[in-house]
Design a protein around this nucleic acid. Sequence first.
DNA 1: GTCGCCTGCTAAACCGTGTTAGCTTGTCGG
DNA 2: CCGACAAGCTAACACGGTTTAGCAGGCGAC
Lengths: 354, 354
Amino acid sequence: MGRRRVTLADVAEASGVSATTASLVLSGRARELRISEEAERRVKATANELGYRRNTLSVGLRTGRSQTIGFVSDTVASSDLAGGMIEGAVEAAHKRGFLVFVGESGGDPAVERALVETMHDRRVDGIVFAAMYTRALALPDGLHDGPAVLLNATPASRSTVHSVLPDEVGAGRSAAQVVVDAGHRAGVHLIGAGPGLEDIPPNSTAAVERLVGMHEVFQAAGIEVVSAHRCPKWMPEDGYTATREVLRRHRPRMLVCFNDRLAFGAYQALAEAGLSVPDDVSVIGFDDHPIASWLRPRLTTVALPHHDLGVRAVEVLLGLFERRRRGNRTPVVHRVPMPVRVGGSVAPPRAGNA
Amino acid sequence: MGRRRVTLADVAEASGVSATTASLVLSGRARELRISEEAERRVKATANELGYRRNTLSVGLRTGRSQTIGFVSDTVASSDLAGGMIEGAVEAAHKRGFLVFVGESGGDPAVERALVETMHDRRVDGIVFAAMYTRALALPDGLHDGPAVLLNATPASRSTVHSVLPDEVGAGRSAAQVVVDAGHRAGVHLIGAGPGLEDIPPNSTAAVERLVGMHEVFQAAGIEVVSAHRCPKWMPEDGYTATREVLRRHRPRMLVCFNDRLAFGAYQALAEAGLSVPDDVSVIGFDDHPIASWLRPRLTTVALPHHDLGVRAVEVLLGLFERRRRGNRTPVVHRVPMPVRVGGSVAPPRAGNA
DNA sequence: GTCGCCTGCTAAACCGTGTTAGCTTGTCGG
DNA sequence: CCGACAAGCTAACACGGTTTAGCAGGCGAC
């Protein structure tokens, strides 16, 4: 502890060459700039021996590239499900030799701006700007000072920033297809949103898109949704209440819940009513929240691929570094597929009492 | 976009002073080094006007301090509950002008070492080394090259590193006290660990310490635990199985579950058996996992203060920077209290059938 | 008058690397 | 014998700040 770190000059001196030569060798440009194999070998050996490590700060100062990216979110880290996005981003970055600054704004625009600025002060090569749940975001000034990618969000106003989003329409289709494939044609109810595209929680693009996908498939199969319940929040409590509401008036066969927490609430209401999943009522959810695998029976759900989203965002961002200058001015929306996780909560309707 | 950033030299020139003077003013050392108020005012004004921002890289290169800390964990970000630690750390750091590098090792020692090294390459001022669940960790070489704090972990071998841990013994006491205060004296069962201090999942210091605290209070109150079930993993499935086991042989009044997921499993088993919480059986858990507030009735639990743990770790680390040199060689263990979150799952035992 | 001290400021070195321009030496053609 | 050229290397500067040493001028004391 405390001993001065080995510097490039130390390596150069110890191997009897100039700092220039050592630099060229250690940044892999020896061949290209005609350094003898003998010298190259010697430099590498001493560097290794002395335990030399490049000072990334000084490299960054000189080259303008810091091998660092920023990850700014409203409240991803704390959320119980979206942490996977950070993990994916950090992992993908590390794989390419990048380190990630993580910042949380709590949704405060002033903090957002401060984070973006202080990251640029540290010369991050780019920034991933993420939202906990999919929605339209106002982009802070300063985000455009460097490469940036939106994760789980779209720009509120016109912008040239690329974005990475879950394929919610496809998810809606997938969920509906599970319902159709199980043979359900009647007794289908929606918990969380619908029936119209405007009956959604505020700003929830996910709700709209899932509805669009579902309608598409239901219509093709000739299925008419019996009832739909918009819930202002998508928590277990809301799913519980909405399901009780359904049970008061109907005899449902299939509940499509707009997320797994709603489905959890539905399970509770169904259990209270003495109904069995999936024998009496089938249930499907969205997100693949941890809770889905803890329910009995395991909930069938369409997964939000948080890890993949994080990975993808970083890959798009790193791709931007290389494609820079080639005036790529049109914003691209990258959709990450949402896979179905099959549990035991969906069964064919019981014969005779549909 | 694309315009060169404003540099210190620009500010100096525009305000008609030397770079030295500008530097002194902008780093707040003007008074101490006798710069006239007039000059100070002028420099500050032009800096503001030009939108000057310090290049943190170059400051770091010169001073050796980067206003940056590293957060290395096995798998905190992805875990569904411990993300709060990152959030707390990031927040506390930001409040003091620090940014946080987040790295995840997945438990791989090689990755751990690589992360610590690459963070030191970027001249982090210190590192928080965190574990998802409390346990003894082997510290990677290189961690001692700078200030470091262990979070949610203790060093496996002798070390001078400070650590920040939840007060698990106190949590055990608190849980037991809730039981005692509710009036329970009989029919108490443990789900997850015990009865002996060796009947625990591998490496789970949390289990041991919670047991110690509980025993202490139970003994003082003259309570004897009827049965205890060690579960290798603490997942809902395990809680479900263990509770069914209990119900086969006993008529429990109070289930103390070693975490909330076990308690969730217990709820499922109790519901299946037609028993009501808390009228027939009281339940208490640990962690304050999101699931606790979704259960019906809400689970009473002793919270793992993830956010506070993250905050505390960073505060201890930052404190180290100042206390440096004053040979503080003895490792300190900081305990963060675990508060009780009262739900509706604990009630006095029903008269007559104890 | 001169010595020392204080005020207000600056020139220059420095942090550790990347990069440009150019130097030496040897070979070869004419 | 001279010039052109290639191979192999290096001196010096740049990046954007901080820090050390010291300078010019005014002022009071002796």
